[in-house]
């Protein structure tokens, strides 16, 4: 069974903590040590960011980490080389999150095949809309047992959430608020109402909240009605400040 599906079913009570980081940041060879440390620190799932020159949906923190990673010489090929033995050391679900153009240039099928060989379980491609996925790429994802993860936002209509739910095989990535990544405002009544509203829709796919989660408080708020939360920018900031030291110290603050 796909590791994401397994993780989602494992313990119905458990709120999942998922961490995003940009591959090749802060140092080019940090990718594997970061993944290993995150697993040791009790993280449930990891999103490995494939850096892109023009990350439209990202705020300054992830933009900068992507620029640094690219300057460090990160490429799609190099990421797969770094990850080639990852399944000897790590057993939690691993996803790759990246914009579509680098994947398109690598070749979508070749990319998916490499993911399968490496032990990647799912893909989050923010600028690949669900319609394009269903039309052109669903069969390829299936062939290599990769779960597609789609985003919803507070502005996504109920009808569209249902369509996204039926295309989803793992979880739905619930964007907390109308913003790019790295929001620092905390969650107000509007967000809480949105978390509640969508959680009551009776969707098949569990909801995991991302964008704007940075500490224990926002993690708790985000997961009150959902299955888990994803932390990206706050973790990148930790890496900027401390390098790869004391990753466990970061996750301990969250829960």
């Amino acid at each position: 069974m796909n590791r994401i599906k397994q993780k989602l079913q494992e313990d119905p009570q458990k709120k999942l903590l998922s961490i995003y980081f940009t591959a090749g940041y802060p140092q080019p060879e940090n990718t594997v040590p970061i993944i290993e440390d995150l697993e040791k620190s009790g993280v449930d799932m990891i999103e490995i960011g494939l850096p892109f020159s023009d990350p439209l949906a990202d705020g300054p923190t992830i933009q900068e980490s992507s620029q640094v990673a690219l300057k460090n010489g990160m490429t799609t090929q190099r990421l797969f080389e770094q990850l080639k033995d990852i399944r000897k050391a790590v057993s939690i679900p691993l996803l790759i999150m990246g914009y579509f153009n680098p994947i398109l240039q690598f070749g979508v099928e070749k990319f998916c095949q490499k993911c399968k060989e490496t032990g990647i379980d799912g893909l989050i491609i923010p600028d690949l809309p669900v319609e394009e996925y269903l039309l052109q790429y669903k069969e390829i994802f299936r062939k290599y047992d990769l779960l597609p993860v789609f985003l919803i936002t507070p502005q996504t209509s109920e009808e569209r959430i249902r369509a996204i739910d039926s295309a989803s095989e793992g979880f739905i990535y619930m964007v907390s608020s109308a913003s790019v990544t790295g929001g620092t405002g905390g969650f107000g009544p509007e967000q809480k109402a949105y978390f509640e509203r969508v959680s009551k829709m009776g969707l098949n796919a569990p909801l995991i909240v991302g964008f704007g989660i940075k500490d224990a408080e926002t993690f708790e708020q985000a997961t009150a009605n959902t299955k888990g939360a994803i932390i990206g920018s706050a973790f990148i900031k930790h890496l900027t400040k401390h390098g790869t030291r004391n990753i466990a110290g970061f996750t301990r603050i969250i829960r």
Partner: peptide
């Protein structure tokens, strides 16, 4: 052509 946009822009 097409519309390869993040979901946040969809509405």
């Amino acid at each position: 052509g097409g519309a390869f946009i993040p979901e946040m822009l969809y509405p």
